[in-house]
Design a protein around this nucleic acid. Structure first.
Length: 262
DNA sequence: CGGGTTACCTGACGGC
DNA sequence: TGCCGTCAGGTAACCC
């Protein structure tokens, strides 16, 4: 998504900003249009699950929550039910932020102070110098919470949500409920590799073309066909055939193989 | 502070 | 057929 947005926005001037429905997870700030109109986009970046549209004025941050999408539409686009924000650029590009469940949000970063939402984030999972077994050994020490909860803790490592946590733990052969402190180093080496593989595969399978966002159901139609455990409770484990189990961990549904994951 | 739970929101889905 | 309850996800706000 970052790559798709960057291709459309980099170097463009945001000509018009329209708030269509201000209520998202957080209300869209009233001054957002006046701040962004006339701003030139420097680049579209990403940190954790946040998209960052850097401009020569302020930076627009957005989080897609669960169902949020940036949709590349034609300039005669008629506002849809869950359209919240519309951007028109100087070259006729139109982008719409749409989010049926309002779990996402858009906001401006402060002009002269660090972004509060980015302050306490853990390392990027695809950065081997920051996210590695040494790091996890250190962080998991004395942590008794289930390893899956900590893997999803954005202060420990960013970008891993419920689906990828379940998939990575299955591949690593680690039981999602296991207390993090009891996972041995050797298995953390494996976990780091599995997290990286799952994310890389998902990114590759998900495609990065902005036009994919236009699909009305918000699905990109990709990685769900390759899930080994997620949403497969009651079905046979792809490794051993054992019926996959469902548990609730940290309020999230968690599917795993009781035989392959220990 | 660590660990745990719940609210937020809408649409899809299953059961009756 | 149609109603209604349940569930899904990421994050913040709460609890003990």
């Amino acid at each position: 998504m970052r790559a798709g947005l960057d291709a459309l926005l980099r170097g463009r001037v945001i000509a018009r900003v329209e708030v269509l429905r201000p209520m998202l997870r957080f209300r869209i700030a009233k001054e957002l249009p006046s701040v962004l109109e006339g701003a030139r986009v420097v680049a579209v970046e990403r940190r954790a699950k946040y998209l960052l549209v850097r401009t020569d004025k302020r930076t627009l941050l957005s989080h897609l929550g669960m169902t949020g999408t940036w949709q590349h539409v034609t300039s005669d686009h008629v506002a849809q039910k869950h359209d919240h924000l519309r951007l028109d650029t100087d070259d006729g590009t139109t982008l719409v932020y749409n989010d049926p469940r309002k779990f996402g949000f858009v906001e401006l970063l402060p002009a002269d102070s660090p972004a509060p939402r980015l302050a306490a984030l853990g390392p990027e999972p695809l950065d081997p110098s920051a996210f590695n077994a040494d790091y996890l050994v250190r962080v998991f020490r004395k942590r008794k919470a289930p390893v899956k909860s900590l893997l999803m803790d954005q202060a420990i490592v960013v970008g891993v949500g419920n689906i990828y946590a379940a998939e990575a733990l299955f591949r690593a052969g680690i039981h999602p409920k296991r207390a993090a402190t009891t996972v041995k180093r050797e298995r953390l080496v494996r976990l780091v590799a599995c997290v990286r593989d799952v994310l890389n595969e998902a990114i590759a399978a998900g495609g990065s073309t902005i036009d994919d966002y236009r699909k009305t159901n918000g699905q990109s139609g990709y990685f769900q066909h390759t899930f080994a455990v997620y949403a497969r409770e009651g079905e046979p484990c792809l490794g051993c055939g054992t019926t996959l189990k469902l548990a609730r961990i940290g309020g999230r549904s968690s599917v795993y193989c009781g035989k392959c994951q220990r």
